[in-house]
Amino acid sequence: MPAVGWAQSDHTNIESGHPLGFDDAYSIGYGERSFGFSRSLGPENDFHVGATYGFAKNQDFTIGYDTKGQELEVSYFRGLRREIEDQPGLAYRVSAHVPRNGSAIVTIRGIGTKHLGQYEKLHFNVDLLLASDVGIGVTLGYSSPIGLPRHFDTQFLAEVSGTVPKDQRSTARFGVGLRHQVNPVTVADIGIQVSAEETRLKFGMSVAF
């Protein structure tokens, strides 16, 4: 959960794609503008750039471009509530991927974040894909700070996800990664995602301005 006003681009605020595929239940700060890129190395290399703007409290808007499918991406994130006592933080994200050649895919993602013990958190993402191949995806994410109580700049992440596209075999994926605060406005991330079909090395960076 990012605190107000500390690091502008915060290593504890988990965004999908940096480096794994899940979100936590928190938007970027109101008024924050950030720019990010990620490189994905696998059977097919991929480069993604995006810019996010926290245009209102608990809401942000992202516009990005992905070289792999030559897709334009737009997404809207809405935080519904923070974690209060034992209740999870909740949010949703609506994304549209518009390939250069092909029809748009709209994804609605429901997000829950809850502490597991003192510092570890679980992040539950459920995706509903609305496209020609409507399907469901589920990701269970895990995050935990590394180095407490002496160091405060690195998060360890892990995920297990499964996707069930309509009329296709389900796919499962496992990933681990790190997010590291480089300076007050920059977070670097690195991770690896493994599925039966491919292994992908991912790294990226987010910069607030």
Binding site: V4, G5, W6, T12, I84, Q118, H151
Partner: peptide
């Protein structure tokens, strides 16, 4: 630390109990 810290990540229990207070503190710290 060399970088600003996310106080909420160090005091998650406190934040879940006193979230409004953290908003006041953080806004003033900013």
């Amino acid at each position: 630390p060399r970088n600003p810290v996310d106080e909420a990540s160090i005091s998650p229990t406190f934040i879940r109990q006193y979230g409004a207070l953290e908003k006041v503190f953080d806004w003033a710290h900013l």
